[in-house]
Design a binder for these strands. Sequence first.
RNA 1: GGCCCUAUCGUCUAACGGUUAGGACAGUGCCCUUUCAAGGCGCAAACCCGGGUUCGAUUCCCGGUAGGGUCACCA
Length: 482
Amino acid sequence: MKIVTRFAPSPTGFMHVGGVRTALFAWAFARKHGGTFILRFEDTDKEREVEGSKEHIIKSLTWLGITWDEGPDIGGPNAPYIQSERLQSYKKYAQTLIDKGYAYADPYTEEELEGLRKKSEEAKKPFLYREYRPENPPAWDGTQPLRLKVPEIKSYKWHDEVRGDLSAGPEAIDDFILIKSDGYPTYNFAHIIDDIEMKVTHILRGDEFISSTPKFLSLYEALGVEHPKFVTLPPIMRADGKKKLGKRDGAKDILEYKEEGYLKEAMMNFLAFIGWNPGGEKEIFSPEEFVKEFSIEHIQIAGGKFNEEKLDWVNKEYLKKLGDKEKAEAVKNYLEKYKKDSWNTIEIKEALVNLITERVKKWGEIKELVTSGELDCFFEEPILKRELIVWKKDKDASSAIAHLNAASKIIESLEEQDCNAKIIKEKLMVYAEKEGKGSVLWPLRYALSGKEQSPDPFALIEILGKNKTLHRWKKAKEILEN
RNA sequence: GGCCCUAUCGUCUAACGGUUAGGACAGUGCCCUUUCAAGGCGCAAACCCGGGUUCGAUUCCCGGUAGGGUCACCA
């Protein structure tokens, strides 16, 4: 059997981690088994639809590298893949149900229904439409809602690939609406028809659908069709664990993470581990490895919280693995984006790229590096304070002057191509070991960075180069001598 | 409230009847070191409670508790 999965969002806004995770698992499952992954838009609620969100969703999935074999943008054997363009299909199935006696027009007004609902509530009983099912419903003319007449009122039992055997009592099924009075089908109806027509074999979705599964089951039964396999994914909870993560809880647009400089592989890796765990101790999985390892048996049952600190850690792991070219490009882009006006030259050597990469968890943090002034010394001359040039354990300035002189001689004697941190360190350390490391290295470093806390002097020298190094040391000496 | 689902360190999780309950993030300590970052090595930290079943339960069953989901002409 060829596996067919789908991701079927409604275009009502951006996608947050919850939706993306669902898409990711459905995608991974299809890819793992060489199956088909379908993207379908469920836009039957025209009121809630948000302009541009279809494109936004496509952009989000594309960023992560989630690709589909059939979809609204690329078509496929069961096109169209937008529900509002499939109304004929729903009408056809609706007619079949009417003919079979499994669907009827709902004659009540909304006010009447509201009244009935209230009555049930006051009686502390659940409201069930089927208890008020009209004896002789009018012929359906398309202006009233069309309801399913459940084939049989009974308890349903079904199997979920993740949760195992599930069941619900007869109060879980009711004559739900198939087609709204505006002519559009409800989700409950449309998604089932689409899944049948598109030959979906596995439905992966969140656990909020467990309670409506009996409804779906009764519809499959009325249609005389076997249902696909249900694969229920655990919910992603808010960081405080109190609720399912939703947009109003500050769940971010997945593309915001892109803006913040997270790597897409890291994002996928992180998302994969919310609700899935292969069992071993390996935590870093490339997209390829993830697809290879993915299996339904390892999907979690209980919900998990969204932990951005872990995401940062995962991202850092991917940052470390990046090639020199990718790192350089990213650093350059973000530096350009956040650079200070006062910086005159922005020359970015490989050593600086490495230094910056080492200090961020995600590229967006370059912004903080810039604002905090940590990078200033690379792009403008630092302002030195006399009392800070000398190491705190030294009594007077004489040793610092001597060290600056000695170090200047060493650097002067270096060939330009030998001006890298490793060689610089080798040369300077001979002197520093002899004279006392703190006493030597502190003034050298401070004179270059103007900061009490900064990278070590060897890296600074490499990044600044011979001329600037010697110039700044000379300046420091002048301050001390006056 | 009815129905349904869930329950291992603060967090994500491993364990599929017998383990000193393992790993990761976060926390903390030490080392490295001129300072910061990074890195290395440690430490601390969990089986929700109560009954069964069993020679033996974190694991299986039941009940409680807690949390979540769902009860729309939303998906």
